[in-house]
């Protein structure tokens, strides 16, 4: 195993392409959520049904613009219909298209990144924690260092501490794939072809709710990542991830 000097070129390129597409996805994703700021569990959910969570993030939050309710059936607990009487906030025309365009870039770059990561040994050597690093003692030491904001200085290249490895690993192998697959589960043409996706997540609205929380985790990761970059030497870190020196 030769000693690494600097981040590899494909790591640097995919890092920034993923950064740009992730920021676009987060921005348009928030816009899409603003249009219907209610989350549900199960297959169906709408303004005439109870929500799991209502987010006060746009004028669509708890808007009262609904006309008279009509029952579909005779039974007292019959589902109902009601016409919407207000014009809601909705920028989904460009919002959705930009979300999916950025999604394509993320998925394409992510796939190439994963292939490179496996075949160059990058994951095995640099991202996957060594067994001895996972000892409670080392984990505890690293946690204490981080809580005291004693962050290791920038290294030019992939020399990561165990917490960093766990964070990168969970983003690369869990939260990003989960967000992407729950995104697919919201596509009617895709679930028609692969209905098991709906069963896997418990329905369309469950997938949407998981998509939201899982992308929220990614946003928290981004914030912590930026704090760590600042704490370990912002200018130097940016140079290492771009110019490489």
């Amino acid at each position: 195993m030769k000693f690494e000097t600097g981040h590899r070129r494909w790591v640097k390129i995919s890092h920034w392409v993923v950064t740009i597409s992730f920021l676009l996805l987060a921005f348009t994703g928030f816009e899409i959520l603003m249009v219907h700021p209610r989350l549900y569990w199960g297959e169906a959910g709408n303004d005439l049904m109870p929500a799991l969570l209502e987010l006060p993030i746009s004028r669509n939050h708890k808007h009262e613009g609904w006309g008279q309710q009509t029952a579909f059936f005779e039974s007292p607990d019959s589902p109902v219909s009601a016409p919407r009487t207000v014009t809601i906030f909705n920028q989904n025309g460009w919002g959705r298209s930009l979300h999916f365009l950025a999604g394509w870039i993320l998925v394409a770059t992510g796939t190439i990144y994963l292939l490179f990561g496996f075949f160059t040994g990058h994951f095995r050597h640099n991202i996957w924690p060594k067994l001895k690093e996972l000892s409670p003692k080392i984990l505890w030491q690293e946690l204490l260092l981080h809580f005291r904001m004693k962050i290791h200085p920038a290294t030019n290249g992939p020399i990561y501490n165990v917490l960093q490895k766990i964070a990168y690993m969970s983003v690369i192998f869990f939260f990003l794939p989960l967000t992407i697959i729950t995104g697919f589960t919201m596509a009617p043409a895709i679930t028609a072809a692969y209905p098991f996706l709906m069963d896997l997540f418990g329905g369309y609205q469950s997938a949407r709710t998981i998509h939201f929380f899982s992308s929220a985790v990614l946003e928290v990761f981004l914030i912590v990542h930026i704090i760590m970059i600042i704490k370990s030497g912002f200018k130097q870190q940016i140079r290492f991830m771009t110019l490489g020196k």
Binding site: A44, L48, F72, A192
Partner: peptide, 24 residues
């Protein structure tokens, strides 16, 4: 995607409330 796969179909008991949006 497989050409003519069907969207999932549900039972009568699964019918939910249904907002009318756009032109009503």
């Amino acid at each position: 995607l497989p050409k003519q796969s069907l969207a999932r179909e549900y039972q009568l008991a699964d019918i939910t409330s249904f907002p009318a949006t756009g032109t009503t």
